[in-house]
Design a binder for these strands. Structure first.
Lengths: 332, 332
DNA sequence: TTGTATGCGTTATCAA
DNA sequence: TTGATAACGCATACAA
């Protein structure tokens, strides 16, 4: 089939083991031999066989990553962080994922990684039940990104704090009728809701609470906004659970010939690329996604090196990004 | 380390070879034995070792995919098609890619796949020179998606036809001053430009030709639009080389208190999710991205099974999607 | 600094 | 239908 180390060794006039050492830049092989081996390898177009290497060394020096939504910039940006940090740490990355993984397809993706004997796994936005995740963490070094799971290393953003930043920004602008379009049963939705209610309460605005159901999609955001806008007493500001929902709100406004921030102040969550485009220019909460990916990898490598260490949940801080969809509340 | 087939065989009271056959559902193993093996495997939590399997069988039954831009929906949707078709064909998928691969990082990604001995490779939007691609195709079954390369299997969309659809849509609406924001040196840009010029000529509008430089980014589109809008004789319609550029045009319009289609008719290219959001609702040219991915896989498996077959370039047809950013030209 | 021998977990060949 | 045995390509402990 393809060129093997044996042939390289033969051509370089050395033993297989020496060729093996030379290819991996082991310091105890002489410069002369090393060059000969490298030259022979290049001439023959030799590619190491990763499978044979794993079998012999029992390590792969790769981490597996499962992205639950390959089209979602929130996740792909986390992946970028993973990839960079992994390279730093000398690990390769095996990426799997799909349009929208279910618990079932997610399990299959994980099985694939396990069969490849990755040294550890990063699960980004897993759908799997906490119990299953704990079981998995028992078999292989594991880090969960996007939510916290008891007994499993995890990294997530401080949603409560982010929500507070959003709501207080609106309060600071003089808004009182601040509605929240939530994420339904989605991950983090509950935490957003609670933080919204808490913050409203802290500012004596509990009477103005208004939570409308969304589902983290553009469509859901749009529907929710239509409900709000057609009510007898529409809010003057909206905090949407993510940028995509906020984009739905913009659609609803446009459809009625209205716009943000003139007719409604609007804050999103995530600071995805969407929020950054000039045509959208959305005030939002930035979540440090690359950092999350990087942190996931450092946590993972730490666990690979010390299986017994106590698990820990890493919490990263979000921050407010003010753009053009919010403005002071104008009189009554 | 982990459970091996040997232990499974022992527990099931059969030989390793039989256990191997049973795990792979070989028809010549008796139901009784098969069940015993499967049961033992489940009890022990056995995971086949993909590396050992590859080494012994010399096949991986997986195709490698390189996505040149992981954040670009154009590419991730192609991947979805790849994945679905691969599953159909019984292949696994190894995905690699990054934020924005250069020729160099692309080469490294390919090396990784080669070291994993994937049975074939799909390159989506490769930056590599045609010569390098031909060399690679010589070593491993290869399909290039997004452009055509002499002597290599490829699948791409018929850019010329798509461009013609866009321009003729605008012409049909009565527009004559139709400008094109191009893709600079990017892939397919030349082809867009030529088709734009040809179509304008066919309709006797060569005198109105106007090509402004873009680069397939939102920022580039915005800059180009600003140039056009501040000229003494602005166009009444714009065909942008992709949806992202078109979004930049919308930003420029908004910034001037203008909007599409009232002040300018606008057509994008790709029909990405962006174009589909209600707030954007962009008239554009749909490229069948899932189909492209699927076609890439069928082409690849065909080549894997017959290395000698003649290479062929597959050309898929785009179609016009009319949304709300275009309208008839209103008088002079 | 270099070579020899052995084993990694599986599939494939062959014989029973 | 089942079992024994030899690869597969490489890393590594050990010997030289």
């Amino acid at each position: 089939m393809s060129v093997t180390l044996k042939e390289v060794a033969a051509r370089a006039g050395v033993s297989r083991s020496l060729a093996s050492l030379a290819m991996r830049n082991d310091p105890r092989v002489s410069a002369r031999r090393r060059e000969a081996v490298l030259k022979a390898a290049a001439e023959l177009g030799y590619r190491p066989n990763a499978h044979a290497a794993q079998l012999a060394s029992r390590r792969t020096m790769t981490v597996g990553v499962v992205l639950v939504e390959l089209h979602n910039p929130v996740y792909t940006e986390i992946f970028t962080g993973v990839q960079e940090q992994a390279e730093q740490a000398g690990y390769g990355v095996l990426l799997t994922g799909g349009e929208l993984l279910t618990a079932d397809t997610e399990r299959r993706a994980i099985d694939g990684l396990l069969e490849h004997r990755v040294d550890g796994i990063v699960l980004v936005g897993p759908r799997l039940a906490s119990k299953d995740l704990r079981e998995l963490a028992d078999r292989v070094p594991l880090v969960v990104v996007g939510r916290h799971v008891q007994g499993v290393d995890s990294v997530a953003v401080d949603t409560r704090h982010g929500t507070r930043l959003a709501v207080e920004h609106l309060v600071g602008l003089g808004h009182e009728d601040i509605a929240h379009i939530d994420g339904g049963n989605g991950p983090g939705a509950e935490s957003h809701r609670r933080a919204y209610l808490d913050t409203m309460k802290q500012h004596g605005l509990s009477a103005r609470n208004r939570v409308v159901r969304g589902d983290y999609t553009e469509h859901g955001g749009r529907r929710a906004a239509e409900t709000l806008l057609s009510s007898t007493h529409p809010p003057t500001a909206v905090f949407a659970a993510n940028d995509l929902s906020a984009l739905g709100v913009l659609a609803a406004l446009k459809h009625r010939g209205m716009s943000a921030p003139e007719d409604l102040s609007l804050v999103g969550f995530d600071n995805t690329v969407l929020a950054q485009y000039g045509y959208i220019d959305l005030t939002t909460i930035d979540t440090p996604r690359q950092d999350m990916g990087a942190t996931a990898v450092t946590t993972l490598t730490a666990r690979i090196e010390d299986t017994g260490r106590p698990t820990r949940p890493a919490q990263l801080a979000p921050r407010l990004i003010v753009r053009s969809t919010t403005m002071p509340h104008t009189g009554v």
